[in-house]
Nucleic acid binder design. Structure first.
Length: 649
DNA sequence: GAGTTTGAAACT
DNA sequence: CAGTTTCAAACTC
């Protein structure tokens, strides 16, 4: 474990598990309980503090989540020690014990210190009556330091509101460690990381606002929702997988949440600012200035490679549970993979028009979202679920931990609009099978290592149709399979025949693609104009219609039109004059081309212009030319304001 | 596109 | 854990 530098703190609250291994173990513990409690304040309120070590912020409930170190903990004031220093990406869950009394506390807000000071972030722990889980997430290494009950370290007016005579209330000082830890944070220039409390040096700041009314709306049994919003002056590129979030619970003392100070500490190199528009351009708000929008906290789901959380609940002794994307648990919504930016970093979800939420906003509607609201998503087959609400593993989207998007499903609940239902469904699935969201096909280093984790149970397909999950994944059946009449084994002649057919088809497709590509490249290589010379070496008529000639012609026409308009001629007359001018221009071209070929060239040029402007063909007739011939002209000469004589090239 | 087949998931 | 039902995808016509 990497030790963080010491910082100016009087005391550190460490969260100890029972048995206490380490306040912040480097490896996730498998010893978990579903309702662990950590007593985290000097007045001994019961809270659950759970930590998890993961590069991406991913949370879950105490019951369904895994990889969270839980356990009955006690608040202990200790001096900084290696074990007390949270490594980066620590996530703190603070969850009131269900049987919390009124005197027990929970964190309701996190705020930054007075501006211009240390910029340390503070968490206020206030009374909580609710059983509602309260989540505190810190993407940055933090230490929890008990402050005085009077909130001396807090900004003016911030603490008083949360303290009542009959309320046990504790202030917790949350201060980020400096940037010397191994996380990808640029150290503050000139600062001594080991001595100076480093303010949250953030390249991209993403305040997370929690609307007051939403907090008021939180009811027991529901999950609080949050909103991730970008400060108007903040250039947000990516939202860190590490965020600091605090939710409030009903009955809690209200404390201002100063979102601008709630900063997300760096994150990914901003490679694509174009992703910014996906962020809701919402000003940071405080609790007092909450908006009516339904806020929600979006926390990235783990990238697939990271999504296996070790050390799970007792139900998952095997150790690995993949918590699916999009699940709302403990007040945290997991984003599906499709909402993650390249590199696994999350993309902020627009608060109101998220493509992830546009679908199935009404019941019994076909689930689809408009193209403009669709996030960049990897190709995926849309589902067609009709009865499962996309909340069963029948639904591929759901099973893959993705939100439905541009699907054809009916009455879809696999979206963030119905995240509560979705969370329950996910929990139900995990209850039935803790590995429900594991990939069915184990990923090995090579194809030979790929195998179906459960094996198929085919009876009639011979495992040679896509009904068979092994065959569909293009892997052989294994001894895990319980299929009957299996023909999906190495030496199977039927399989070989199919493979040959498939190979032949693949070759055919490749050949067709190659031929198409070649043809397209040849077409691109073709000259934009046909050959200018005939077989006899003569310059063909259309070779005189160069870009310059066309441009000159157009200018003549425009000039003619302008003149006609200036003279106040009626519309019909203007059109007539333009056509006449066009005829003169053509005549000039024709005469040039006509130098050697005469009428033959005239006909060919006529064909050219007829092809281009069929209706004007009539003007090629000399009887329609009001201005006679221009035998000397090589290029059109304008009678209007424009005059252009580029000559032929 | 409608109907059938199939096997995983869900349920009992 | 086994049998049955439900479900959506794959498949056929």
């Amino acid at each position: 474990m990497k030790k963080g530098p010491s910082i100016c703190m009087e005391k550190i609250i460490t969260v100890k598990r029972e048995p206490i291994d380490d306040a912040y173990p480097t490896s996730p513990s498998t010893k978990t309980t579903s309702t662990a409690v950590a007593t985290a304040t000097t007045t001994a309120p019961a809270q659950t503090l759970m930590t998890k070590t993961t590069p991406a912020a991913s949370l879950g409930t105490a019951t369904a989540t895994s990889g969270v170190v839980t356990g009955t903990a006690s608040a202990t004031a200790v001096t900084p020690s290696p074990g007390a220093v949270a490594p980066e990406h620590k996530i703190f869950y603070i969850q009131p014990k269900p049987e919390l009394s009124k005197t027990q506390c929970t964190v309701v807000s996190v705020m930054q210190g007075p501006s211009g000071t240390t910029s340390s972030t503070k968490a206020v722990v206030a009374n909580a009556h609710s059983k509602q889980p309260v989540v505190v997430i810190s993407g940055s290494p933090i230490k929890l330091t008990p402050l005085s009950r009077a909130g001396a370290a807090l900004g003016a007016g911030q603490a008083s509101s949360s303290v009542g005579n009959n309320i046990t209330c504790t202030l917790v000082h949350v201060q980020p460690l400096n940037a010397t830890s191994k996380q990808n944070i640029a150290p503050k220039a000139g600062a001594s990381p080991s001595k100076t409390p480093v303010p949250l040096q953030i390249q991209k700041l993403v305040p997370i606002s929690v609307a007051a009314n939403s907090l008021a709306k939180i009811q027991p049994g529901t999950t609080p929702q949050f909103t991730m919003a970008a400060a108007p002056t903040t250039s947000v590129r990516h939202i860190a997988p590490k965020v600091s979030i605090v939710s409030a619970v009903p009955g809690s003392q209200t404390v201002r949440l100063t979102t601008p100070s709630l900063q997300v500490r760096n994150i990914a190199p901003a490679e694509k600012p174009a992703q910014v528009p996906q962020l809701a351009p919402k000003p940071a708000v405080t609790l007092a200035s909450s908006v009516a929008q339904q806020p929600r906290l979006i926390v990235p789901a783990l990238p697939s490679s990271m999504s296996q959380i070790s050390g799970v609940t007792g139900a998952t002794a095997a150790g690995n549970v993949q918590f699916p994307h999009g699940v709302l648990s403990g007040g945290v919504v997991y984003l599906p993979q499709q909402a993650l930016a390249p590199g696994g970093f999350p993309i902020a979800v627009p608060m109101q028009t998220s493509a992830l939420t546009t679908s199935a906003q009404t019941s019994m509607t076909v689930n689809g979202s408009s193209a403009e609201s669709s996030p960049p998503s990897r190709p995926r087959k849309p589902c067609n679920c009709t009865k499962s609400q996309c909340l069963k593993l029948y639904c591929d989207c759901f099973a893959n931990g993705e939100f439905c998007n541009n699907c054809n499903c009916v009455n879809c609940s696999n979206n963030m609009e119905r995240e509560n239902e979705r969370s329950k469904a996910i929990k139900a699935c995990l209850d039935r099978n803790p590995l429900a969201f594991h990939p069915k096909i184990g990923k090995g280093r090579g194809d030979s290592d790929r195998r179906h984790n459960k094996g198929c149970h085919c009876k009639r397909s011979g495992c040679l149709k896509n009904y068979c999950e092994c065959y569909e994944a293009k892997i052989l059946c294994t001894n895990l399979c319980k299929c009957t009449g299996c023909k999906n084994f190495e030496e199977s002649p039927e399989r070989k025949t199919l493979m040959h057919l498939a190979d032949a088809a693949e070759v055919r497709v490749k050949q067709q693609n190659a031929a198409r590509t070649k043809l397209e490249s040849q077409i691109e290589d073709l000259p934009s104009r046909p050959t200018f010379l005939s077989n006899s070496g003569e310059r063909l008529p259309f070779s005189f219609v160069t870009d310059d000639v066309v441009q000159a012609t157009c200018q003549c026409l425009l000039a003619q039109a302008s003149n006609a308009e200036n003279e106040g001629k009626p519309q019909a007359m203007i059109e007539k004059m333009i056509l006449e001018e066009f005829g003169r221009c053509l005549l000039s071209i024709i005469h040039t081309a006509n130098g050697t070929k005469g009428k033959e060239a005239l006909l060919q040029v006529t064909c050219i212009f007829t092809h281009i402007r069929g209706p004007f063909n009539f003007i090629l007739s000399p009887s329609n030319w009001s201005h006679g011939n221009h035998p000397e002209a090589e290029v059109p000469e304008c009678r209007g304001v424009a005059s252009f004589n580029p000559g032929f090239h």
